[in-house]
């Protein structure tokens, strides 16, 4: 099994896959997937009057953990207390959305035979290095999303479709930051 990369883009490493192992299906056409994603977003606007999001679920989760460690500290903090109310911190709309997203992605991955434990990376970096980058990049994204009041889901996708001013500025800056830093971390990916 270890020779089979479940993350391999279909067709790329096919020669190395033993015949007995079922091959992962090709990814969906990006335009078809985009229409599907767009219809989910449109349904959210029509049914709920709000768009999608992801970072808020992480914030709720952190507020819940922090509250168990020190309720006084959490209540005094402007960031954590935003995610606390009369209800349980995990009884939040975005927490349920992200839990659903986990299930939906798992269904899709199993259907396409893409599930498998792996570290996704380019050929020129060691696993430990890749995981270090993943942690540091995640931390930057978390801080950036808190500053901007949203991430690729809550800002770029949702606000993009609503022609929200700050969301379009955020989206342009995400691409700018990504392209600007890409050269410096190229050994991780290519």
């Amino acid at each position: 099994m270890s020779a089979v990369s479940p993350t391999a883009v279909a067709g790329k490493h096919v020669d190395r896959v033993p015949r007995s192992v079922p091959r992962a299906a090709a990814y969906m056409n990006p335009y078809v997937a985009g229409v599907g994603l767009g219809l989910v977003l449109l349904a959210s606007f029509v049914i709920m009057g709000r768009g999608l999001g992801a970072t808020g679920a992480f914030s709720s989760f952190i507020a819940w953990i922090a509250q168990m460690i020190s309720p006084e500290h959490v209540e005094a903090n402007a960031v954590y207390s935003d995610y606390l109310g009369d209800q349980h911190p995990l009884k939040a709309w975005l927490v349920f959305l992200v839990a659903g997203a986990f299930v939906g992605a798992l269904i899709s991955g199993l259907m396409a035979r893409r599930f498998g434990f792996a570290v996704d990376k380019g050929p020129r970096i060691a696993t430990a290095g890749r995981l270090g980058y993943a942690f540091f990049g995640g931390a930057l994204a978390g801080i950036g999303a808190k500053m901007a009041l949203g991430c690729t889901s809550g800002q770029a996708l949702t606000g993009g479709a609503l022609l929200n001013t700050g969301s379009w500025i955020f989206m342009l800056m995400v691409f700018t930051g990504g392209f600007a830093a890409a050269w410096f971390v190229r050994k991780q990916w290519i």
Binding site: G137, L140, T176, G177
Partner: peptide, 9 residues
């Protein structure tokens, strides 16, 4: 925030 997020991406 967008720039920091993009680098994080």
């Amino acid at each position: 925030g967008g720039l920091v997020f993009g680098v994080g991406f």
